[in-house]
Design a protein around this nucleic acid. Structure first.
Lengths: 114, 114
DNA sequence: TATACATATGAACAATTGCTCAAATGAAGA
DNA sequence: TCTTCATTTGAGCAATTGTTCATATGTATA
């Protein structure tokens, strides 16, 4: 383990940056949101839901994936409270549930579109 | 494969959403950036670099990780052009190189901090 | 040139991920 | 109740990921 403990080259800057860093839990929380959007299939689901609510079957059609695969991904997004669902009879409708994530997506969309 | 091809429930909405979706390459490109920020170790490196340039050894100290592990992560961030480096003698300094990523981080930081 | 130091790299490994398949659940209609 | 349909769930698997360890580069100094 070459953990740079006492042989640091710039102790002052290291101390300063250490002080400015968010708490580890906050870092993990941020990373979790990014991870939710880091898989193209999952990101596509979120992008599709920017247009408003869709049922699982429709999302599967839009994403060219099986309903099972979509359902697994939706569970991850639901756990992270990025989407919420509402049942109407046999059909379950999903919508985006996190304004902050919507902003992140829009910002990142704007960038990709130049 | 139960790809919902002809038994779609809401064909009109599906067609509308399909039309509004970014190109697949754009989705993949967006996902790549999110993926870069999706690992807590890598995100911590980026957060540390918000404070300005740091050498590998310092980043290792800040992140409590080996220099080798940090170097591997920095390579990923370099490949994605999220960071850039400059060598001064034996020491290599890293800085953030993508304003868009910096904005994403700031936005997400603001959210975690409420 | 020889040594020491900062960083980079490749192989290898455990852990995690996203998918498939089969089976279960929940709701509506016959 | 039995069947059908939309969705969910669990097990299992291949592929990917982040780390470690050992080794290689590149740079400065003796």
């Amino acid at each position: 383990m070459d953990l740079c403990t006492d042989k640091c080259i710039h102790e002052v800057e290291v101390a300063k940056t250490l002080k400015s860093l968010p708490a580890q839990e906050e870092i993990v929380e941020m990373a979790e949101i990014f991870k939710a959007l880091s898989d193209p299939s999952r990101l596509k689901i979120v992008l599709a839901l920017l247009n408003g609510e869709h049922c699982v079957c429709d999302i599967a059609a839009i994403c060219h994936q099986t309903e099972s695969a979509i359902s697994h991904q939706l569970r991850i997004l639901r756990t992270l409270k990025i989407v919420k669902n509402k049942r109407e009879g046999k059909i379950v409708y999903y919508t985006l549930d996190d304004d902050h994530v919507i902003s992140l997506i829009h910002m990142s969309l704007a960038h990709v579109k130049h």
